[in-house]
């Protein structure tokens, strides 16, 4: 014998699934791994400059970020760090586009000189972070150009231009 099931009863398990899936969180392990090894990343995003004045290099980095139209955010001489942003920091409508950069300096003890490292992120920011994503526009050529310009910037400052 078959019972006649009212159609809305079928929706009860569906609702339960919907309620649970609404709160589904993925384990964020992917965020702390990268496709490249640390040394590969460091090679692509870093360059050694033959100068021992870390403060002068940090000044050049700030000048370069100004050249490139970035707003300088955090600076810390003791940590050897400058950060900058370009684009919409506040998401006024649904989405905003922002480029974030972190540049660090590290004195190289044995060989001498300063290692400069940059990390760029090109982000489409949503008001709800779950809809924020990164664009894959930041390749090796971006870093190449950045360091070429930094070399120019160091040269210009060394000659007071």
């Amino acid at each position: 014998m078959m019972f006649k099931v009212p159609p809305f009863v079928l929706l009860i398990p569906l609702s339960a699934v919907a309620a649970l899936s609404g709160c589904q969180q993925t384990t964020p392990t992917a965020a702390l791994t990268t496709a490249m090894t640390a040394s590969e990343t460091r090679q692509m995003t870093g360059r050694r400059f033959d100068i021992n004045d870390e403060r002068a290099v940090l000044t050049s980095i700030v000048q370069l970020l100004q050249d490139l139209g970035y707003k300088v955010g955090e600076t810390d001489v003791k940590a050897g760090l400058v950060t900058g942003t370009k684009g919409a920091e506040e998401v006024v409508t649904y989405y905003g586009s922002i480029i974030r950069v972190t540049v660090t300096t590290t004195p190289i003890r044995d060989k001498g000189g300063i290692q400069v490292r940059a990390t760029f992120q090109d982000i489409v920011q949503a008001r709800d972070p779950r809809y924020t994503y990164a664009r894959s526009t930041v390749g090796p050529e971006v870093y190449q150009q950045f360091f070429d310009r930094l070399a120019q910037s160091l040269f210009l400052e060394a000659h007071d231009i």
Binding site: T26, P28, A30, A31, L32, T33, T34, A38, T41, R42, T45, G73, E74, D76, K78, A79, L81, T83, R100, V101, T102, T104, R117, T119, F120, Q121, I123, Q125, P129, R130, T132, Y133, A134
Partner: peptide, 26 residues
């Protein structure tokens, strides 16, 4: 930086660093 984060804030006195990474998540 190795892990692709960009720094938001640093305070050497307090020994503090905060940073953000975006993928298809934040």
């Amino acid at each position: 930086q190795d892990l692709g984060f960009t720094v938001d804030k640093v305070d050497q006195t307090l020994g503090l660093v905060s940073a953000t990474k975006a993928g298809n998540y934040v």
